[in-house]
Structure formats: structure tokens, C-alpha cells
Write a protein that binds this DNA or RNA. Structure first.
Length: 122
DNA sequence: GGCGTGACTATAC
DNA sequence: GGTATAGCCACGC
């Protein structure tokens, strides 16, 4: 089977996105845009969503750790997918408050600030 | 090829 | 907080 240059490029981007998502540590979250950037595709946040949709909920990907840039879940509140994502996050210690995840605290490589701002007292 | 749609985002009011 | 707009791009019709 042959592939056009474009198909090959898309396939590589797809794989890069899968790799970036798999690297999100347990208990952390990352935005679609951040995943795109880490996959070498800055500005292509929509492509991350598209790839995840194509992968499906059964994929062996920590899809629940991918959020919008403001820390909210991309699915409609109350929907099956929304509840499942919230449940999976809670299961690894990531709470959702007012419909959002605190990126300053749980964001991938963005939690250093939180550690400095909220050091254990006494 | 155009056009609408969408698991997006940044900027500007 | 919200709406609008523009950029992004794969996909299906």
C-alpha cells in the first residue's frame, strides 16, 4: 500500500499526539493546545480533539487528562462523557470545582508555582 | 473544489 | 462572567 506525502504527514502528527498524551503524568492535566505544541504542532489544538475522537473512549490513552485551556472539560456538562472524565480525574486525585480543574495546581509542569505558593505550613 | 462542523485558543470588547 | 471574531485544520457532504 502506498501513502501520499500528506497522508504520511498526518499519520506522523497523529502518532505524535498519541505520544504526547501518553506522557501526561497521572494526577496531572494538560490542555489540547499544550498537547499539540508538545507534539510539534503549535496552534493545532483542534487536531488533538479530532485525534482523540477518532481514538474513542476505549483507547489506551489517558484522554481524561486533556482539558480546555481554561481547565474546563470539553464535553457538555452532565453528558455521559463529561461524567466519565470527571470520575476518572477524581479517581487519580484531581478534583473539579465549579466545572473546572485548577491548572495552577494540577497542570502538567505548571504545578511548581502552586508548590511555592502553598508550602506546607508548620 | 466549497462549506459547515467541531473533544480548540487567543484576543478584544 | 459573556459574546464576537479570527485563526487553526481534518472530515464529511
Amino acid at each position: 500500500m502506498s501513502m501520499t506525502a500528506r497522508e504520511s504527514h498526518l499519520s506522523a502528527a497523529h502518532a505524535a499526539i498519541h505520544r504526547a498524551i501518553r506522557k501526561i503524568p497521572r494526577g496531572c492535566v494538560a490542555s489540547y493546545g499544550e498537547i499539540a505544541a508538545r507534539a510539534g504542532l503549535p496552534g493545532r489544538a483542534r487536531m488533538v480533539g479530532h485525534v482523540l475522537g477518532a481514538a474513542g473512549a476505549e483507547a489506551e490513552l489517558p484522554w481524561h487528562r486533556v482539558l480546555r485551556a481554561d481547565g474546563s472539560v470539553a464535553f457538555a456538562p452532565g453528558s455521559r462523557a463529561f461524567r466519565e472524565q470527571k470520575r476518572r480525574l477524581a479517581a487519580e486525585g484531581v478534583p473539579m470545582l465549579r466545572g473546572r480543574i485548577d491548572l495552577a495546581q494540577y497542570g502538567w509542569e505548571r504545578n511548581l508555582d502552586a508548590a511555592l505558593w502553598a508550602p506546607p505550613m508548620s
